[in-house]
């Protein structure tokens, strides 16, 4: 058999495979690299972990002590996320925490966020509400759903969930679900099956 020119079908297949590789391999990596570079630039005044990626606009400001952990993700969307740490304040964010678009994170005294947390769009976290300033602590693996507002002085326990649109004014114990305005917490055992079957 003589090696000849590939047939049209073969060429088409090769091109399709090429496009597929570009779509699934090259583009996401390029996007990721761009996100990391953008985060480096946006958070230049922060103490930054490695692998932090910003896929959209983030307005970041640091006049105090702000530390962001490794592998954070900031997603982009219709509203920019804003991260602000004012003079003399402390803002700590743990590793692998994810922020959707439109999150507003403000530290006037102290805001601590654990590892692997998830913040959905339009979540507002601020330790100052006009009358008082009181530190906020969010432990590991917390999920704060769309549009929730965390008021000053709350502590959210590990693995808890803050439900969409709730306004949290009291501490939320670990493994519970906070819901409503003002938010009340209930045990996750009451509303969700055990981790194994979830």
């Amino acid at each position: 058999m003589r090696p000849g020119l590939p047939t049209a079908a073969e060429t088409a297949r090769a091109v399709r495979a090429g496009i597929q590789v570009v779509r699934t391999e090259v583009l996401p990596r390029a996007e990721r690299a761009l996100g990391v570079a953008r985060a480096r630039w946006l958070f230049r005044s922060f103490r930054l972990g490695h692998g932090v990626a910003a896929y959209g606009t983030v307005s970041a400001r640091n006049d105090g002590h702000a530390e962001l952990g490794d592998k954070l993700t900031f997603l982009g969307g219709m509203l920019p996320t804003s991260v602000a740490c004012y003079e003399g304040a402390r803002l700590l964010v743990g590793a692998e925490t994810q922020f959707n678009y439109g999150v507003s994170l403000e530290a006037w005294e102290s805001v601590q966020i654990g590892a692997r947390c998830m913040f959905a769009s339009f979540v507002r976290v601020s330790d100052r509400d006009g009358q008082r300033i009181s530190p906020i602590i969010i432990e590991d693996d917390v999920w704060v759903a769309h549009g929730a507002i965390l008021l000053p002085g709350v502590r959210i326990g590990a693995r808890s969930v803050v439900s969409a649109g709730s306004i949290v004014s009291q501490d939320v114990p670990p493994d519970s679900l906070a819901m409503g305005n003002p938010a009340r917490s209930m045990s996750l055992d009451l509303v969700a099956r055990e981790a194994s079957s979830a």
Binding site: S163, M179, R184, R193
Partner: peptide, 16 residues
């Protein structure tokens, strides 16, 4: 309520 899927989490808050 949970295992039978009768009431979801929002519903539980309403019940409370």
């Amino acid at each position: 309520f949970l295992r039978k899927g009768l009431i979801d989490s929002t519903g539980m808050m309403e019940l409370v």
